[in-house]
């Protein structure tokens, strides 16, 4: 019986399998053939780059107004995309406005993912009264429609970009917390967590090595779908005068101030809306692609 091992090794060795690929490796591989997602990922990258280099790309100062050139159509002289109601160059304002809109889309989601994710993992792993305390508090926030809640919070805090972001963060925390909590609860009951406990590991070590890696996927997918929501809500807040303050260019704010000119230059007035539409659509489709690539049972 001494060669049991040799026999076993032989047997196991015969079962050849494809090259070893980790979880993230397989996700990347699936994304490689998803051309729609890749296309919109490129669009997002372009938008980010354009916003980043707005100071270099913008042909005019986005805040410089001119009474002589108000509400000019697309292609009027040097104004490639026309001018707004104060005679400011639309192209420059759109380029600069991308910065605030992207910040409004990303910062609240990142912050909420961090805070909500932590609370959710805590609630899910500890269970019991900690879970009840955290999740019931989240339910209170959940009870309000998200738009109403965002308006109420930023209305209370006062306008401004920073307060708008705080409001959006608070709006997103409960849903992210819930996603993290349910993912954690699911993983917590599995045997490999028991096995880790049986090997004498501390709670912190188990969470770090065995829980987080398994919770990250679902939380990440959900968070990516919130980016477009955040951009829309942020624009909505600016539209209502609760987010970005003039004269800072912001797509939502531009949409709001240009609405009076909709009968004069409909195309120009629709441009900020188109920018919001393209950006949030891209984020949404990329998020969908990520979900498909990541939501594969291991």
């Amino acid at each position: 019986m001494t060669d049991v091992n040799a026999q076993l090794a032989d047997f196991a060795g015969k079962e050849a399998s494809p090259p070893v690929r980790g979880y993230w490796g397989s996700v990347a591989n699936r994304l490689r053939y998803d051309y729609v997602t890749l296309f919109f990922l490129t669009v997002i990258l372009l938008i980010v780059l354009i916003s980043l280099f707005a100071p270099l790309l913008a042909p005019f100062d986005p805040t410089k107004s001119s009474m002589a050139y108000r509400m000019k159509p697309v292609g009027f002289r040097n104004f490639m995309l026309g001018t707004d109601e104060l005679g400011r160059d639309m192209l420059s304002r759109l380029l600069w406005g991308g910065r605030t809109s992207l910040l409004m889309g990303l910062v609240p989601v990142v912050l909420a993912t961090f805070i909500g994710g932590m609370l959710g993992v805590l609630a899910g792993f500890l269970g019991g009264w900690v879970n009840t305390a955290i999740m019931r508090t989240m339910d209170v926030f959940y009870a309000f429609p998200s738009v109403l809640l965002a308006v109420a919070i930023s209305g209370t805090l006062g306008g401004g970009t920073k307060n708008g972001m705080v409001a959006l963060t608070l709006v997103f925390i409960p849903s992210l917390c819930r996603v993290a909590e349910s993912a954690t609860t699911q993983v917590r009951g599995l045997d490999f967590v028991e096995a880790a406990r049986a090997s004498g590991a501390s709670t912190l070590s188990i969470v770090q090595h065995h829980i987080l890696g398994n919770v990250l996927g679902p939380v990440f997918i959900f968070a990516s779908s919130l980016i477009s929501v955040s951009i829309l809500l942020g624009s909505g807040l600016s539209f209502l005068g609760l987010g970005v303050e003039p004269p800072t260019p912001d797509w939502g704010l531009m949409l709001s101030t240009l609405r009076s000119g909709i009968y004069v230059q409909p195309l120009v007035c629709a441009l900020p809306g188109a920018a919001i539409f393209i950006t949030s659509l891209s984020f949404n489709l990329v998020s969908d692609g990520l979900r498909q690539a990541m939501d594969v049972k291991a």
Binding site: V20, Y23, D191, F192, A195, A196, A201, S205, G213
Partner: peptide
């Protein structure tokens, strides 16, 4: 030590098996 029944749920899907084995001694 204990060997569990369900070989599917008793290994962390996000860890290479070698790391799963090394985890106990690391702890």
């Amino acid at each position: 030590q204990m060997v569990f029944q369900d070989s599917y749920s008793s290994l962390n899907p996000r860890l290479p098996v070698q790391d799963s084995i090394a985890y106990g001694p690391r702890v």
